[in-house]
Amino acid sequence: MKVWALHLAVVAALFALQFVLPPYHATNLARIMVLAVFAMGYNIAFGYTGLLSLGHAVFFAAGMFGMGLPVWHLDWTALPALITGLAAGGLVAGAVGLLALRTAGVSFMIVTLMFAQAGYLLLLYFGAVTGGDEGFVVETSSRSVFGWNLSEDGPRYVAALTLFAAALLSCLWLVRSPFGRVMVAMRENEDRSRMLGYNPFRVKLIALVMSGLYAGAAGAVYGLLFGYVGATFATIQYSILPMLYVLLGGAGTVLGPLLGAAVVFYLIDITSAFTDAYFFVVGASLVALVLFAPKGILGTIRERVAAWLP
């Protein structure tokens, strides 16, 4: 009860913020919420199931291009394109998982990194179809859902919040479900879980596909809300960012991805006022996190004061 109340309160607070915040910060927050959904997907794989992937950018990009390409080439409208984007994220995750999940640990990290890199290079190689280095703009005319024009500030914020709320509550439900318990068991001790009758490959594949669906949904919505689709979103950097969000916010906590995304976003936003050394901030926080706070903010809070935090 307390748990659902907390998470619904967070959603309500985010809804209320749009009436208070100046447009600049409202747009930022819309971006943060979509990126947080991406990070929630990463958290399902890494935080809950223990799959440390370095290739989630390819799932995000699959969602983005899965949405963008039909709109660009086939003049699809936004809603069916969003669904193909979501499906593309899940499909690519499933395909990568079928191969990558035969490995574990460091090998898994490198295999996912390589698949993501190959995905990025494929986007460049087939530049005629994908827009290559330049990417492409999603026309404003294709960016409306149920008559709402998502290129305007208000509807954009509501759309981002809708995605975020759906993702947050379904994630909360998932991790408290029996399957969520199995994912954690797999992270904690794979051999023991096998001897309780769970097929590790199957459990991890399902978790990775769900993770890919989140990433794909985030990618598709990101492209739609901000009107641009490009291969940059498939670079390694976009695999590192969700990892950073999750590590900072707290791996294996439901609200950690949102907190991590918000903190990193504003950390970069504020430091960029003084210096353009944004990558330095990312790098230094990664090092600091693994050294001094491997459990992240909410992970530490859960350990010290609020053990009930999911």
Partner: peptide, 15 residues
């Protein structure tokens, strides 16, 4: 953890 840390070092050196 070492991979994550060396990714951090990568960004710091590059920047």
């Amino acid at each position: 953890a070492t991979i994550v840390a060396t990714i951090g070092i990568l960004y710091m050196l590059q920047q």
